[in-house]
């Protein structure tokens, strides 16, 4: 049987919008995931500076958050985003690959809570952070 860790590796390519943004799964862990997305001119949000649109970063952070929920050991079903708050620290540097790392730090019977950070050249230089709540279904609850 495929483990969630193995399945999560295909997350970026199996989800059409992730594939359209050329996302890649960098690292899968327990309740955590790291994903990345290359710079692309078609994603420019501000033509004056060439800076990528915040929306593309939101999509990366949302995907990565979803992946971390999927990677929670008790996860029993596909989850959807209930809410997501994204804070933008600084613009991403044009031409640089963007990384996001998500942790699913708490789950209840029906909700998973997630934190995400995003950076470009260095993890010390955050471009955005996000917190979100996702729907969650316990493995045990599903079978009962």
């Amino acid at each position: 049987m495929t483990t969630p860790q193995e399945a999560a590796k295909y997350f970026a390519t199996a989800l059409p919008h992730c594939a359209a943004l050329n996302m890649e799964m960098e690292e899968v862990g327990v309740s955590s995931a790291t994903m990345s997305m290359p710079y692309d001119k078609k994603l420019i949000g501000d033509p004056a500076t060439g800076v990528i649109h915040g929306g593309a970063i939101s999509a990366l952070m949302d995907s990565c958050g979803g992946a971390s929920v999927f990677l929670h050991p008790d996860n029993g079903a596909a989850s959807v985003t209930l809410d997501l708050r994204i804070d933008y620290m600084r613009p991403a540097i044009p031409e640089k690959r963007i990384y996001a790392q998500a942790t699913c730090y708490h789950v209840t019977r029906s909700v998973a809570f997630v934190r995400v950070i995003a950076w470009d050249t260095s993890k010390d230089r955050l471009i955005a952070t996000a917190t979100g709540a996702f729907s969650f279904q316990h493995k045990a609850a599903k079978s009962s």
């Binding site: 199996a14 989800l15 059409p16 919008h17 992730c18 594939a19 359209a20 649109h53 915040g54 929306g55 593309a56 939101s58 999509a59 990366l60 952070m61 949302d62 995907s63 979803g66 596909a78 959807v80 985003t81 997501l84 994204i86």
Partner: peptide, 21 residues
């Protein structure tokens, strides 16, 4: 290309967030 979950199918939450932004 806007689809997140192909089994539903549902538009990706990130695409929706990007649209609203």
């Amino acid at each position: 290309q806007l689809i997140g979950n192909p089994t539903v199918p549902a538009i990706h939450g990130g695409a929706m967030a990007a649209f609203m932004e």
